[in-house]
């Protein structure tokens, strides 16, 4: 018997469907289910209601980690957008050596967060790093002891993260700028409108969908930020730079607290869902204006 090619096309999707349904959706439901059990090292199937969530909310470390998600996320996304937009606009001024500059701005995107974290930990080390360099310039009392300060260590994550990802934002926004109709510039010349006002009032609103896309991409990096934290600060000093992604992995695989970790993972999932609702509102708002 010979199958119709269209039937074969459907069958060709079966491995992927199986892989996604089991890998994604069964796993997600399983995790949500585990969050309602008192599982420790191994999963147990006993109903514990919202006990794990209550315990989670009483855990100081979770509060720090969850707050850090927004501190790190806000600063990281903000700086990436500002620097990325600045660079994209600068490169759009028909500068010489544009591809050279673009190559330099974008190369960190090719590197892993592990490499990024190791490089910046080395740069920020207090004995031979940046602090020592600035002191050598004559500023004897200069301190850049970011890594060992519980209040400020989070900024090292922001610096390293922005270094890694600002180029990505630049290249996406630059592609957006290039796709804008060049006739608006002729129109602005006729009306004698300064360039910066054109960017602020005309170009930026036109770029809005691209900006939202950047927001989504950067937001995903924030939610997933695990590697950078592990290498650069290890979540410390103490747990001052912990993030949910690290909290969850630690509680699953080191602290043998599967129920609590699952509750945290479920909350992280809900956060992503909430952010997506926010993004779709932002999209619609951009489309409406």
């Amino acid at each position: 018997m010979k199958l119709r090619p269209r039937t074969v096309a459907s069958l060709a999707l079966v491995p992927t469907i199986l892989l996604t349904v089991i890998g994604y959706y069964v796993s997600i439901l399983w995790t949500v289910g585990l969050s309602f059990t008192p599982s420790r090292i191994l999963p147990v199937a006993r109903w514990a209601g919202f006990d794990m969530y209550e315990r989670l909310f009483q855990t100081e470390r979770w509060h720090v980690a969850y707050t850090n998600l927004y501190i790190f996320g806000g600063l990281y996304i903000g700086f990436c957008l500002v620097i990325g937009l600045g660079l994209a606009i600068a490169l759009d001024q028909s500068v010489r050596g544009r591809s050279f500059f673009q190559t330099i701005f974008l190369y960190p995107v090719a590197l892993s967060f592990i490499v990024t974290g190791l490089a910046w930990r080395w740069l920020l080390n207090p004995t031979t790093g940046l602090q020592d360099f600035v002191r050598g310039l004559g500023f004897e009392s200069f301190t850049l002891d970011l890594l060992s300060s519980p209040d400020r260590a989070i900024f090292t994550l922001v610096i390293a993260g922005v270094w890694h990802s600002a180029g990505l934002t630049m290249v996406i926004l630059f592609a957006g700028l290039q796709s804008i109709d060049q006739e608006i510039w002729q129109a602005s010349r006729v009306d004698c409108i300064p360039r910066w006002r054109m960017y602020w009032h005309v170009v930026l609103p036109m770029l809005w969908p691209v900006v939202v896309t950047c927001l989504v991409l950067l937001g995903m990096q924030v939610v997933r930020s695990y590697d950078l934290v592990v290498v650069l600060t290890g979540g410390g000093p103490g747990y001052s730079t912990d993030v949910p992604a690290k909290f969850i992995v630690d509680h699953y695989f080191e602290r043998q607290n599967v129920g609590l970790a699952s509750a945290a993972a479920t909350l992280l999932l809900l956060t992503v869902v909430a952010l997506f609702v926010l993004v779709s509102i932002l999209r619609r708002k951009g489309a409406a204006t």
Partner: peptide, 11 residues
């Protein structure tokens, strides 16, 4: 768009 952390343990 789902973070890996939500799926790794069941996997």
């Amino acid at each position: 768009f789902v973070p890996y952390q939500v799926m790794i343990y069941p996997l």
